[in-house]
Design a protein around this nucleic acid. Structure first.
Lengths: 149, 149
DNA sequence: TTTATATATTTGTCACACTAACTATTGGTA
DNA sequence: TACCAATAGTTAGTGTGACAAATATATAAA
């Protein structure tokens, strides 16, 4: 294998990641989910952790702080999330889902699992494990010293 | 495997694709390459095809037309690419590299191959083939009827 | 206590992705 | 000829991503 062919992974990886996001986003839209794919990721993580600071949430979803600030702004505007001042630390907020946010997550979760399955047609459980292993290895190879996860 | 675990691929895929792009972009920056990762992809494809229209190029790099318009705007501004009016079809342009563009590609190509290799530490040639197969399968699963490539 | 440093979040800038709407042009057809 | 659908490309709006810098507060050190 020449070095040239070797470097195509980056193109395929980028192309596939975009397609996965695009496909999900189209389904989200045609189902009137009222959230984007990234907003869903944030909602889902908030639903699995009663209360989080923005920093904790950023580490969970692997987004940087400015990006997260903006996503949360939008989710607050839509009424799914609330920022509550931290009682001890006035720099920080405690994030939690509103009533509306909880029921949004409950109603969307099964539909989204359905959407996600489509990608795995013609692929096996073993493929899935290999895929995860390779993705994680690449991630760690490029992640310098910070070995989070 | 539960449906829930099964849906994690989208998170890992997105996370890894972003890391790959971010790593490359950092290297591009510290090497003063004067282009972004996506701009490089466009330059590279132009160097491999003497003359292309924007639509042909968009199909090669799998970017949509508005995105490509902007990338080409930037590359023209930097002096690496020229838009030449198509002699027969006044709607369309013929894109080609300038002298500067050609030498930019020549000088960057080996450095970028170097950067791309880093991701494959601890992974085998077989992993690479499996990875490509799975990525392409996912892509096609989500790509509706249009079976390009 | 004062100073220094670290942490939590926001703001600004540039680049890219996707959608929708728009202009200009082409080519076929009534 | 006049009309109409398709094509090439651009523009605008919104969301996201990376990075740098700013603000506010907290904590540790001198």
């Amino acid at each position: 294998m020449t070095q040239e062919q070797y470097s195509k992974y980056s193109f395929l990886l980028d192309r596939t990641a975009r397609k996965v996001k695009q496909y999900a986003q189209q389904q989200f839209k045609s189902g009137d989910f009222d959230v984007t794919v990234d907003q869903w990721l944030v909602l889902k993580n908030l639903s699995e952790n009663d209360v989080l600071s923005q920093t904790e949430l950023a580490n969970l979803v692997f987004k940087d702080h400015p990006t997260l600030t903006r996503i949360i702004d939008l989710l607050c505007k839509k009424g799914y999330v609330e920022r509550v001042p931290h009682p001890q630390d006035r720099r920080s907020f405690q994030l939690h889902l509103t009533e509306t946010g909880v029921s949004k997550v409950t109603s969307l979760r099964p539909e989204i699992l359905q959407i996600r399955e489509k990608a795995w047609e013609n692929l096996s459980t073993h493929d899935f494990e290999e895929f995860k292993r390779i993705l994680n290895t690449i991630y760690q190879n490029l992640n310098g010293e910070s070995l989070d996860q």
